[in-house]
Design a protein around this nucleic acid. Structure first.
Length: 676
DNA sequence: TTTTGAAGTCTCTCC
DNA sequence: GACTTCAAAA
């Protein structure tokens, strides 16, 4: 393979770097993925066994894409390379090495919502449920806990920094967290933070030293993508994984660090040369993605940021028009502009799949989704509310999880509350009776339900028993289990929720997804670690069409690129979001997020903002809004301005009124006693 | 004790 | 506008 012919000088240097620590600082669109893929190919060519290479990426999609490209270069043996997210890899290692360290082999993974629910149970167990209204709610508790684990900042310091009003509860926080930890362990539940924490502990703890060495010895080379979005805990894990060798390659762009809210710290990439003395640093600056005018605008925007590895992206490509900055009168005019322009580009030959609309938060595309549906333009939406965060999906999963792990208190609680006649108290009593019976299978059947709950209790016992005692000839598939569960659940759904049809469609989809998994455990784990992206709510024609427009949050757009990109809602308070405004670090993160959004575009870029916003957050009134602060005077010069006129926003009357409702002429005549 | 209707509360980003 | 919490009725 002729690496020199395929790569530019900097890429070549990175791809063929010998052993030892390597930091690749790669600006947006500079062929970062390409370089990483060639590095993997180079390692294999050098004789490193593929299964001894670990490739850590941000999403599973990114890992698969990279491995597929590597396969085209070096053939099928690259398929043995281990690729995945930090959490996914942690899961794999814990299933294998956990039992040696006292962790059950069949633990269940809690997603964020589950963890919060469990936190609520701990809060109640500590007697803090309703005594004081002012005690923080479960989401806040969980946020503080998760932040503490991922950043290693003491709880007290987090409270002082983010929740000064809760400082007086510092001791109560500690009590709830202790209960939360014990509760998870007693019920074999593992949350996202635990996955990382246990991985780090396996590598570090003295009694587990032998295991740590064996895990470290599994790989000869470790490559990490999107390194700017790793946190302190992940950095510790990497240190541990590199104990027996120092072959670590990290790729990242400090200008694209957008996950501080989850504990990521830009320090990991800025301090890498200090943490790994002797590390080589290669900077990629030549951009292969965007036209120069788009790069000019992006460079200008990010040049306002403070601490960073300085780099100025350039391209050898010439031509291209300035990006557009579009002022709309209101939200709907913004929507119509975007849709009209998309159709225009589509007419001119750009497929829908080469265009994307980006925004700060999931709900900001609501008006656009309605318009696209009305105009029959197929789209898929990334980010925002996840499929499995929907209440009805979690309901069905609770049944499966109780079957998988009878100690799953969160799921028991959820599913008991669903049953008619069973409320909070009865559910707690039932769970307590199961705890007393050491969670044996039969204990729920023996629970003495109050009269009005008898029927529901009986039905549930029967269903669970039937699902547990499947004989060999029966259909064991997860999809079939879901079908059985729905026999009981669908009626409950119809009773409890409105908008029944789309919810039932979601369950159909869940059943379909389940068909792809060999067993219940792997289905549940995959759902927690790699959830399907969209609900079937409005995603019109999503999976049947092969040419669909993408609507995405700026976060979910990371790593992707399109011919034409529209960034909507560039309004101060929306992008940046208002809750970031008090904090300089958060504003900087919002700026980088805007930079990520702009640099997704290859040829066409349009940033739009409405001047009048009907803002329900502030007393439901129209407010006159300002352009995002990131587009200051200097940055605006890199754009061409388009101001949509009021008249363009007025819809043409559909049909003239059949008969005048008000007779103006007659009124005038009667007033002046018309002559003639 | 559960259910139901009404008032109240926040709104994000993701593994 | 969706979801949670609260108070009164069954």
């Amino acid at each position: 393979m002729d690496f020199a012919a395929e790569l530019n000088d900097a890429q070549l240097k990175a791809a063929t770097h010998p052993d030892g620590p390597l930091l690749i600082v790669a600006g947006a669109g500079t062929g970062k993925t390409r370089t990483l893929v060639y590095r993997v190919a180079h390692l294999i060519e050098r004789g490193i066994r593929p299964e001894r290479i670990l490739l850590l990426t941000f999403t599973r999609r990114a890992a698969q894409e990279m491995l597929a490209r590597a396969e085209r270069l070096v053939g099928s043996e690259s398929r043995a390379v281990h690729g995945g997210t930090f959490h996914g890899t942690a899961h794999r290692l814990l299933r294998r090495f956990g039992p040696e360290a006292g962790l059950p082999g069949d633990f269940t993974i809690l997603d964020q919502g589950d963890s919060e629910d469990l936190m609520q149970l701990s809060r109640a167990a500590c007697g803090l449920a309703d005594k004081t209204k002012r005690f923080p709610k479960k989401e806040t508790l969980h946020h503080v806990y998760s932040r503490h684990v991922n950043t290693e900042i003491p709880v007290g310091a987090i409270l002082r920094e983010e929740y000064p009003r809760f400082i007086e509860f510092e001791d109560d926080f500690a009590r709830v967290f202790a209960d939360f930890t014990a509760r998870k362990q007693a019920r074999d539940l593992v949350d996202y933070d635990d996955l990382l924490l246990y991985w780090a502990m396996l590598l570090e703890a003295e009694p587990a030293r032998a295991i740590g060495d064996r895990i470290g010895a599994l790989y000869d080379h470790i490559l990490v993508d999107e390194f700017q979005d790793t946190n302190v805990l992940q950095a510790r894990i990497l240190k541990g994984m590199c104990r027996v060798h120092r072959n670590i390659t990290v790729v990242g762009d400090d200008a694209q660090s957008i996950y501080a809210f989850r504990g990521a710290t830009i320090r990991n990439i800025l301090d890498f040369p200090r943490d790994y003395p002797g590390a080589a640093v290669v900077t990629l600056e030549q951009n292969y993605r965007s036209t120069q005018p788009i790069l000019d605008a992006s460079n200008l925007l990010i040049s306002r940021a403070e601490e960073r590895y300085s780099k100025e992206l350039y391209t050898k490509r010439t031509g291209g028009e300035k990006p557009w900055l579009v002022t709309a009168q209101d939200e709907h005019q913004q929507t119509r502009f975007v849709v009209d322009r998309i159709l225009e580009l589509h007419e001119a030959g750009t497929p829908l799949r080469e265009m994307a609309v980006l925004f700060r938060a999931g709900y900001m595309s609501a008006d656009l989704e309605i318009e696209l549906t009305a105009r029959n333009i197929p789209f898929e939406k990334w980010g925002g509310l996840k499929f499995l965060e929907a209440a009805h999906v979690k309901d069905v999963l609770a049944f499966l999880r109780v079957l998988e792990n009878p100690r799953d208190e969160v799921s028991w609680y959820r599913l008991l509350l669903l049953m008619p006649g069973i409320g909070d108290t009865t559910a707690r009593n039932a769970i307590q009776s199961m705890i007393d019976a050491a969670w044996s299978h039969e204990s729920f059947g023996r629970f003495n339900a109050p009269p009005r709950a008898k029927a529901a209790h009986g039905a549930l016992v029967q269903l669970l028993a039937a699902l547990r005692s499947q004989s060999a000839g029966d259909d064991h598939s997860v999809a079939h289990e879901i079908a059985r569960v729905r026999g009981l659940y669908d009626d409950i759904l119809r009773e409890r929720y409105d908008r029944v049809e789309p919810r039932l469609a979601d369950l159909e989809q869940l059943q379909g997804i389940a068909g792809g998994y060999p067993d219940r455990a792997s289905f549940l784990a995959a759902l927690a670690l790699d959830p399907p992206s969209a609900t079937s709510d409005l995603g019109f024609g999503g999976e049947n069409e092969d040419d669909t427009l993408v609507l995405s949050t700026a976060h979910s757009a990371k790593g992707k690129e399109w011919d034409a990109v529209f960034v909507i809602w560039a309004v101060d308070g929306w992008f940046p979001m208002s809750r970031a405004l008090g904090d300089d670090d958060q504003i900087e993160e919002e700026r980088r997020l805007m930079y990520v959004a702009l640099t997704r575009a290859r040829h066409h870029l349009a940033v739009t903002y409405p001047m009048n916003v009907y803002d329900t957050r502030r007393g439901a009134d129209y407010s006159f809004d300002q352009l995002s602060r990131f587009l200051d005077r200097g940055v605006r010069n890199a754009f061409q301005r388009v101001v949509l006129q009021v008249s363009e926003g007025l819809p043409a009357p559909e049909t003239p009124a059949a008969a005048p409702v008000v007779d103006l002429k007659g009124m005038l005549r009667s007033r002046f006693g018309g002559g003639s």
